[in-house]
Simulated assay, not measured.
Amino acid sequence: MSDVARLQQQFADIVTSDHRHGGQLGIEREAARLADEALQLQSSGAASQRVRASLYGSAASFRSSAMWAAIDGRRFNDAVAHMREAQALAEMSGDAAIKFRTWSHAGTMYRHMGRPTDAAAANTVARSTAVVRRDPMFASLGLARHGAIHAVAGDLAAAQRVFTQAREALARADAGEVRPVWLTAFYDEAEIHSLALSAYLSLGDWSKAEVHGHRCLSGLRPHMVRSRAITTARLARAQLEQREVETAVHTAMRIPADAAAGHPRVSAMLSGFGDRLSHLAPSSGPAAVWRRHATRAGRTSR
């Protein structure tokens, strides 16, 4: 179990790095390497069934983090490969929490790929795990992610319903219960607002998206650096679509240069923001300000 404890600390380090940087190939590769290391320990000497199950759980945790980094970095083919490994390892571990994480990540992956039917099927598997029945916090996360999936499918009523249920489930969660570090590191009311922001952007309800964007930013914990950049980019887009051009540009310019240039999702969002700004207000002062800012940021990143 000392090996397991060491791996668990390394997993916590991976989670911390992901929340700061996100989507980086280095995080993906390190998580995959640690998954392989956990599996290699299976073949070195005798071990109890408890230890073996824990090692499979550690391997599944690392592989699902590699999967998440690939999703966040828009490397979907790699994410699918990590997903298959993680799902098999989670089954061998017998750990319902890591099985939930793996299938819930799969749902998010398919949502980002624009495949809401597959996303809903994967997230339904996650929501059928025993840990969801035991712990309202897991139930809440499953519901909130399903809300974003409903939005991609264009189902406003279903999205609104499950977001309400997600908030109610989170309110029932016992704050004193011991939970996996990957869950407690990010899931709270701010994350529900983040997913609602994404959902209302998908549905084209820009004013509601903006409301959830502000609420998310006000509740994000300091270590959520990657999430703050993503939320700010989404908020800027919601403001731009309401023709709040100057406000939108000021919002987008708050994103740190390293996130704007170094995080694949943020870079893609800001590229889309710039294209949309050029379409809506090509000759405006704010558009000129944004072009100068984007040019400087690009030079800095090089």
Rank of each mutant, 00 (worst) to 15 (best):
D3N: 07
V4A: 02
A5D: 14
F11N: 05
F11P: 00
L34W: 04
L34H: 03
E37C: 02
A38K: 03
A38G: 03
L39S: 05
L41Y: 05
A47M: 14
Y56W: 14
A59R: 00
R74F: 11
F76M: 06
H82T: 01
A86F: 08
I98Y: 02
W103N: 09
M113N: 05
T117A: 15
D118E: 14
A121R: 13
R133V: 06
R133W: 05
M137T: 13
A139S: 14
L143S: 10
L143D: 07
G147C: 10
A148W: 02
A148Y: 02
I149G: 00
I149T: 08
H150M: 12
A153L: 09
A153R: 13
Q160E: 15
V162C: 09
T164F: 01
E168P: 01
A169Y: 02
L170K: 06
L170A: 05
R172C: 04
A175S: 15
S194Q: 12
L201T: 02
L201Y: 01
D205L: 12
E210N: 00
H214A: 09
P222I: 15
H223Y: 07
R226M: 11
R228N: 04
R228A: 14
T232V: 11
E244T: 04
T247I: 11
A248L: 06
H250T: 12
A252C: 03
M253Y: 03
I255P: 00
D258R: 13
A259T: 02
A259Q: 15
A261C: 12
L277R: 03
L277F: 04
L280A: 11
P282H: 09
A288G: 08
V289Y: 03
V289W: 07
W290Q: 06
W290T: 09
R291A: 14
H293R: 13
S301P: 01
R302C: 12
